[in-house]
Write a protein that binds this DNA or RNA. Structure first.
Lengths: 222, 222
DNA sequence: TATCCCGAGTTGGTATCCCAAACAATCCAG
DNA sequence: CTGGATTGTTTGGGATACCAACTCGGGATA
């Protein structure tokens, strides 16, 4: 694989895992030494990440995109029509094997699993459901939305019961798709998105002081 | 503005206006002489355009993204839930002044207007409606979808009546928003998207031989 | 003491150079 | 005449050199 793609993927991972703090400045020279490559592939990776809005310009400088908590509501508003459409289409189009694949993914993540695993599955589930719709535009839009949500979800204080609830909701959505009940699946998906949004906002609001103290450039906290 | 952005915008314009044919190969060296800049900013512009899916890699080479007519259906399927949501939200949120602004845009495009004008307004209308929703994610998604549609719309054989019909439908959508009738607006928007899709597909299918003859790399014609 | 100004250092933007891989034309062997 | 090896050319990927603009101190001055 080209060096540029390696750097892109690594940098992306560092950003999404909060290894690099939101709002943190990135200098091309630092990245140069960090990745032991020249500025050419690094700049290409940065331009690419800019397109994914994981990196942004601040004047002439590069910064890690800040987390804007204000956009969480808009994000839910965006996801609801798309994901309800996705599950309806999935009812009509997904094969039993496709559904079983997603089910397997959920099963693979048991209570003992590490935090990273829960985080990943919680994101991928929605993308995989979108994939069942067979519509590539829906898939890409949902994948982008989940990427945007991803970092905020690391900041959430995860309790065992909330994890369990999310898991149950995922399970129920999938169940309705399997039972070929599009309207129930759509209702469940919309409720799940709202629940998740509320849980996240409540958690972040309670912890806002903690976030600031940990040095996160988090904007949009009201 | 940086040279890279200039090149990006110019190249983007050339692609969207079909100045550069879909599927056409782009060599960095040719672009270098064409834009009288060095390869560095050109490559940055290409990476950026790749993110917008207007340019694509074919092995090691760059090509102008082909037009995939097969994706027109998926595109409509994607737009319907988003745009119906957008008009519903617009009913709740758009100010009279905002609506008047869009109305003005429609009025500015009278029957005598050049083809480019109709094309532009026909695209921008949907983006502006999305903007009335106040949800930036919906705006970006619709803008992206309209960009993807844009080139196929140039290939459509535009008749005066079809233009008039599209204009009337736009007008009616806006009318329902103004009258604060979200469900009627949503119904009208969905119908309009389907009508447009059907018109476009019919036109392209009738003309497919003409398209091939004009040398367009058009994939997905069935 | 406060303020302004200048210069050293650092940054991203651009041009250019080198390289390995892909491609094509060519040339030789059969 | 044909097919395959070979070599020359062109391409994109990466490295590096240079530049203009910005940043930030420190010192001169009012």
């Amino acid at each position: 694989m080209s060096q540029m793609l390696q750097i892109h993927d690594q940098l992306r991972e560092m950003i999404l895992s909060l290894d690099l703090g939101p709002g943190e400045r990135l200098t091309e020279r630092w990245l140069e030494s960090r990745f032991e490559g020249s500025r050419t592939p690094i700049r290409a990776a940065l331009v690419r990440l800019e397109g994914e809005e994981l990196v942004r310009r601040d004047g002439r400088n590069w910064i890690v995109a800040p987390i804007d908590i204000g956009e969480l509501e808009a994000l839910a508003e965006f996801r609801i029509p798309l994901e309800t459409t996705a599950v309806r289409l999935a009812c009509a189009r997904a094969s039993a094997a496709d559904i079983a694949g997603v089910e397997e993914m959920l099963d693979a993540c048991q209570s003992g699993a590490p935090r990273e695993e829960w985080h990943r599955v919680g994101t991928d589930f929605h993308v995989e459901i979108a994939r069942l719709s067979g519509n590539p535009f829906i898939v890409k839009a949902i994948a982008g939305a989940m990427t945007r949500l991803s970092r905020a979800r690391w900041l959430e204080v995860w309790t065992e019961p909330s994890r369990e609830q999310a898991w149950r909701e995922h399970r129920r959505i999938l169940g309705f798709i399997e039972a070929n009940d599009p309207e129930a699946a759509a209702r469940e998906a919309a409720d799940h998105i709202k629940d998740t949004r509320d849980r996240l906002l409540r958690s972040l609001n309670e912890d806002r002081r903690g976030l600031r103290a940990r040095g996160f450039a988090v904007i949009g906290l009201r």
